[in-house]
Structures are given as C-alpha cells and as structure tokens.
Design a protein around this nucleic acid. Structure first.
Lengths: 206, 206
DNA sequence: GCGGACATGTTGACACTGGCTAGATTGCTT
DNA sequence: AAGCAATCTAGCCAGTGTCAACATGTCCGC
C-alpha cells in the first residue's frame, strides 16, 4: 500500500533515478534529461523539479548509482579469489580489480562515462579519505587490496603511499582511451593484450 | 587583401573553428555551439552549415586543434632536454612528456576534455599506427620517447611492445581523475606528489 | 569587357527538443 | 475544513537542424 500508482506516487525520486540510469546506460550522461526521465516515470515533465533542483542534480544521483554498479562488479570479480598463498591471493585480487574496472567500462560505457563524467555528489569533496567512502566504493576496494599487498609482504610499506593513485590512474586511463579516446576501435583481443601489459607494468612498478 | 571583411569573408571555416576553440577552452566540448560560433564569427547561424554538416563535425575539427595544442606543449617541454648521458636524457624526456600531459589537462581543462571527449576525426580509425600519425601528435611523441629508451639501452626491447599503452594510460588516467573524477579538488601540491608517484611507478614498471 | 554560372552568405521562418518558471490543482493528513 | 506537499497545465527561452528565396562576389567563356 505504501507505493501506490495514485496521484502522489510516493517514490517519484527513485523512479526518476531509475529512468535516468536506463538513459545513462544507453547514451551516457548527456542522454539523461529531466523531461525524458519524467516521461518514463509516467509523470509530467515538471514534477521532477520537486525532487531535483535541476538536471545536474539528477545526473549526480544517477552517477552515484553508476559508481555503485562498478563497485558491485569489482566485488563480484574478487570475492571468489582465495589462493593458498596470501601474497599470490592479494596480487590476483588487485589484478582482478583492474580487469573488472576496464570490463565495466567496455560492457557499460554509458554507466562508466556517467560515473566519472561529472564532479561526484557526495564523495571526495575535501580529500577523498578512503575510510570515509561508502562500503564497497571502488576506490575503497582498491585501497583494501593494496593494504593486503602490504600485509602479505609483497609491497614494502614505504611504497604504499600514493600507490592507489598509480594503480587507479592506469586502469582509468586505459578505460578512457578505449572508450572515448584514440584507442576507440581497438579490437577486443588486442585490447586484452594491451591491458595485460598495463597491469603488468603496474604490479612490477608498485 | 586576401582575407577581406567583405561579404564572403573567405575563410569562414577557420573562423568558426577559432571561435569553437575559444568556446571549448572556456567550457569544454558541450560549450561548442554552431549558433554561438557563428555569432562570434560575425555571421548568420545558417552560414555554418555550408562548412560543417552538423555540430559534431565542428566539434571534431575543434578537437583536432586541441590535440595539436597538447602536442605543442609536449614538444616545448621536451625540446630543451639533452643530458650528457643519453639514457638519462631519454628517461627525463619521457618524464617531461608525462608532466606536460597532466599540466595541459590542469591548465586547459576545456581543451583537454574536448581533445578526448569525442571519437577523433582523422586519427586512429583502423589501428593507431604511430607512423601514420601527423608529425607532433602526442601519441607519436610518446612512441618516439619510448624508442629512445630502447636505443639508449634503458628499456629492453622485449618490454617495448605495449609500453606505449601503459605509459599513456597512466598519465591519461591521472589527468582524467583530476579533472572530472574523484580527485577533482585535490590541492595542486598534493597532485604534484601523486603524479610523481605515478610517473615513478611507470618508469620502474616498464 | 560582358554575361551568365556558381559558391558563399543572408534573412526569415519552422518543427522539434530540452531546461526552467509560475500559478493553479489535487489529494492526503490533521 | 485547513494546510501542505506533490503534481499538473501552460508558457518562456535557447539550441539544433532544415527549408526557401534572395543578395553578392568570383570566375570563365565568349
């Protein structure tokens, strides 16, 4: 009874975000429109303004959901990994995170672009403290993986500071070049090879 | 006399691109509009369609110029470097290229976003053959620097294949995270430190 | 030199879309 | 019955893309 299809339909905000997520999936952040989202929510184009100050607020909310989606994929790809050797496990997990990141960008380019297309809403306005990020946030998973590398003795702790930026930059950059950049139409098999090199360089360099 | 302020002003196409470049500088690719560019070129909004099929064609032309601009900065930053030791020189040059790349993104975010915001016009549609790129193209400069690393004996040639993707991804990703991503408001001094780590990881890992 | 192609740009209008605002209206709650 | 929040109807403004008719400059053949 809570969610009625009545005049006040009770959770328009969520419905708008859902519609926005679908739009973003198909066409990236530019495809998110208040009018179109309202249309899909079965509501007049103006009702949206009761829940979002303007278009960019909706986009920000959708971007958050896209970031969560990325975090979910990364979680799914790493939770099965548990080698006998803890060091090998930590390394494999970092690797899997990187591949998940790039796969997400390739499989859901619209979401990926949306997640990183606009200054994020609630994350990272002062500093990007890993501990302050919501559970499951991609950046937090990365930091955890790097910490595991340190505790398992693979990564000397003197090298730990800043390592998150190096690892993140590498996969983020590769994804970006693949999606919107000059690597746009690199065939998948070749892209896999190139990604392997990228990940190798990072693990060797950390 | 060639370029008159007359009725046919002779190089409207260039004028439109120039206006587009200015718009992109201030507001990124979304800020490039046919109407506004025409207005700035002192021309009716309809004349533009004689030179560009649609908005995205103009954006593509502007993006090319932005890419050239990046190439120019990279050139400027490396041409002074000539250490006594050729190996040290090659390393320093690669490093300078990376810093130039990120500095460009920070100093000219609109141009940077434009350069990489849309599938490029003339470059890289089949494969991105380094040799086929125009003189001074950023990717070509990167490849040359890596080749120098090989000839000067720093980089074993077995590691050369794919190295360009690793190096490019790292700086491109860092720039992206800094501009549009979660590192959006990292203070410059901290960003410099982080970039140093990124570049170190790459040189060590190559 | 003259006269007509032809390219280039102009004026003005139109359909469509999207963002945003104002003022009424509906229906739940108290 | 009153108040309030959510939604609606209507409208303004700006941008893209398109069309048609017209003006102006250049160039080529005669």
């Amino acid at each position: 009874m809570t969610v009625k299809e009545s005049y006040h339909h009770g959770n328009l905000r969520q419905a708008l975000i859902d519609a926005g997520v679908a739009l973003a999936r198909a066409g990236g952040p530019e495809a998110i429109g208040l009018r179109e989202a309202s249309r899909r929510a079965g509501v007049s184009h103006n009702a949206a303004y009761g829940h979002f100050a303007d278009r960019s607020s909706l986009v920000a909310a959708v971007a958050d959901r896209c970031m969560q989606e990325l975090g979910l994929l990364m979680r799914r790809r790493t939770q099965g990994i548990a080698e006998s050797d803890p060091a090998a496990g930590a390394g494999a997990r970092l690797n899997a995170l990187g591949r998940a990141y790039v796969d997400f960008a390739r499989d859901e380019p619209g979401w990926f672009r949306t997640a990183f297309g606009a200054p994020p809403a609630h994350t990272a306005h002062d500093r990007l403290e890993a501990a302050a990020l919501p559970e499951g946030h991609p950046f937090r998973q990365l930091n955890d993986a790097l910490d595991d590398l340190v505790t398992s003795g693979v990564l000397p702790s003197s090298r730990r500071p800043g390592a998150e930026y190096a690892a993140w930059s590498a996969v983020h950059g590769f994804a970006g070049l693949l999606l919107d950049g000059p690597l746009h139409d690199m065939p998948p098999s070749q892209a896999d090879q190139a990604l392997t090199v990228v990940l190798d360089v990072v693990s060797r360099g950390l």
